Computed example of a mutant assay.
Amino acid sequence: MLHHITLHLARNAEFPAGSVRHGYNLVAPLTEAGHLDPDVWAGARDRCTVRRFWANEDDRHGLLRHKAGGAHGATWIIDYDPDSSDDDEPGYRLESHVFAPGEYVTIKDQQGAHTFRIASVSAVPSPQPSSAAVSGIAGPRP
């Protein structure tokens, strides 16, 4: 099932209290246990979106990708440009993390690795079929 996930920058030397003005909004597939689900991702990859928000910078929009390679044979990355890997932001062992409020994950961007606190996780409502499809009513004929 797909979930909305909000990450906020965790406390660090520059932001001792963390920052809600730096982070990510993700739509990602999670298992019942809260782990990223590569099987659901495979069928919904274009719906697994990412918005990076960073104070005083334009938002960046991309997709969550599951790519071959990494410590466990595959890795999760944020892909802003499908024609280039130069801007990819890999997550650190995201496959082993539980995505639940209060937990932490690390994402590496061009400036280095940053730790984020998971601020919220909520299920994305399933798309509802149209009323015509539910009732079996055919559409207008040409």
Results as ranks from 00 to 15, higher is better:
H4E: 08
H22S: 13
L7K: 02
A28V: 14
L7F: 06
R52P: 04
V40I: 13
P16T: 13
H3R: 00
A42S: 15
T6F: 11
L9N: 02
L26W: 12
L26Q: 08
C48D: 07
Y24W: 10
F15E: 04
V20F: 11
T6Q: 08
L7I: 10
G34E: 13
N12P: 01
T49S: 14
N12T: 04
H3G: 08
T6H: 07
G43I: 02
A17H: 05
R52N: 10
A44S: 11
V27G: 03
A17D: 12
R45D: 15
A10E: 13
S19C: 11
S19Q: 12
R45L: 13
A44E: 15
R45P: 04
H8C: 03
S19L: 07
H8T: 03
F53L: 02
E32T: 15
A13E: 11
V50M: 06
R52K: 09
R51P: 06
W41Q: 04
H35Q: 01
G34C: 13
V40R: 05
F53G: 01
L9A: 06
A10R: 08
E14G: 06
F53R: 14
I5R: 00
A28G: 15
A13K: 10
D46W: 05
D37S: 14
N25R: 10
D46A: 08
E14N: 03
V27K: 04
H35E: 02
H35R: 06
H4Q: 10
H4I: 03
A42Q: 15
S19A: 12
E32K: 00
H8I: 02
D37Y: 05
A33M: 12
T49H: 12
A33Y: 07
W41G: 04
T49N: 04
P29H: 01
H3P: 01
G43E: 12
L7N: 06
C48N: 14
T49G: 11
F53E: 05
P16C: 07
G43C: 12
A42V: 10
R11D: 06
D39R: 13
P38L: 09
E32W: 01
D37N: 05
A17R: 01
L26R: 08
H3L: 01
G43K: 11
Y24A: 14
R47G: 13
R11I: 01
R21T: 15
P38W: 11
F15Q: 08
G23Q: 03
W41A: 09
A17Y: 04
R52H: 09
H8G: 00
P38K: 12
P29S: 08
H22I: 15
A13V: 03
E14R: 03
P16K: 07
F53N: 01
A44V: 13
L9C: 05
L30Q: 09
A13D: 13
A33P: 02
R52M: 12
T6I: 11
A17M: 14
R47Y: 07
R52W: 05
D39P: 06
F53D: 09
R47N: 15
E32G: 06
V50E: 00
A44L: 14
A17V: 09
H22N: 14
N25M: 13
H35P: 04
F15K: 07
D46L: 09
D37Q: 03
A33E: 15
V40H: 02
A28Y: 02
L9K: 00
A42K: 14
G43N: 09
H22Y: 10
P29T: 00
W41K: 07
L30N: 01
C48I: 01
N25K: 09
L26Y: 05
